[in-house]
Design a protein around this nucleic acid. Sequence first.
DNA 1: CCGTTTTAGGATAAATGTATCTCTAAGCCG
DNA 2: CGGCTTAGAGATACATTTATCCTAAAACGG
Lengths: 142, 142
Amino acid sequence: MFSRACEYGLRAALYLASLKHNGYVSIREIGERLNISVPFLTKIFQKLTQAGLMQSLRGPSGGVMFARSPEEITLFDVIVAIDGPDLFTECVLGLPGCGEAAPCPLHDHWKEVRTPIRDLFASTTLADMARRIQEARLRLTA
Amino acid sequence: MFSRACEYGLRAALYLASLKHNGYVSIREIGERLNISVPFLTKIFQKLTQAGLMQSLRGPSGGVMFARSPEEITLFDVIVAIDGPDLFTECVLGLPGCGEAAPCPLHDHWKEVRTPIRDLFASTTLADMARRIQEARLRLTA
DNA sequence: CCGTTTTAGGATAAATGTATCTCTAAGCCG
DNA sequence: CGGCTTAGAGATACATTTATCCTAAAACGG
Ligand code: SF4
Ligand code: SF4
């Protein structure tokens, strides 16, 4: 479904949102907490900052933090920033230039399920998830 | 979503189902018809025959054909034979051993959408698709 | 200003997925 | 049987993803 990088990015974003700590958090701390390779996670956060979702600061007491409120960042935003929009635009058979005009046989069935997927991720904010994590002690790591 | 191999396998299976020609069809013919690398497609059909979905015959007038009626083969069968069941069992955050017992924060939302996806593919047979292809001249290739 | 900490960015290595190649085995035909 | 055709299977190349490494740039703290 998602690339490993995207899974890591989602877990890291959910972890940060659950902290309720406004200020920079170092990537090393996040990686160690979630058992994710710190150098790899650094690359992922670079994408998130370049996409404008996070902002970063170097040096001691530096790290990464949300560029806007977790209330205004959806899972969709994170996914697209890391994996690109292909999952929500390209489609099951991978045919070039497909769509309503020249549909493949699956099109009618598939569009009924692709939209709910997109809506789910587009309507769920990091803050929503953070509330769930705190209420039910849900886990982000093994 | 699916691997390229799985996309090719689905397209090939749908093509065969749409033929209404009971008998062996050579992989070379399928590959050339659908613009898919013939050696790679051969590998994919090896998986489908090993999974018991197709049967094969070597030599002239050989090729591959369905091992049981296209009415009894679902898209789910093809997907699992090629990509494995991970898409339908493993889940969004890729956490090991996740599930109802130790859910991640997305679990409740995600299960509402994963089941429809699985049902869609599990309830659609190759014969269903073949009918749609013939009725509406739907395409399988660029 | 200098040493330390931390992200940024590019280069490199390992692993996986995609595609090709070669040889074998099976089947057909004369 | 001998030559041709086709799938099977393993080895090999290529591409992409995943992960690591190294040097720089920015920030802080003495
Ligand atoms: S389902 Fe629709 S959008 Fe997806 S490959 Fe088929 S025609 Fe294209
Ligand atoms: S949604 Fe459920 S099954 Fe999927 S990773 Fe989260 S806990 Fe596991």
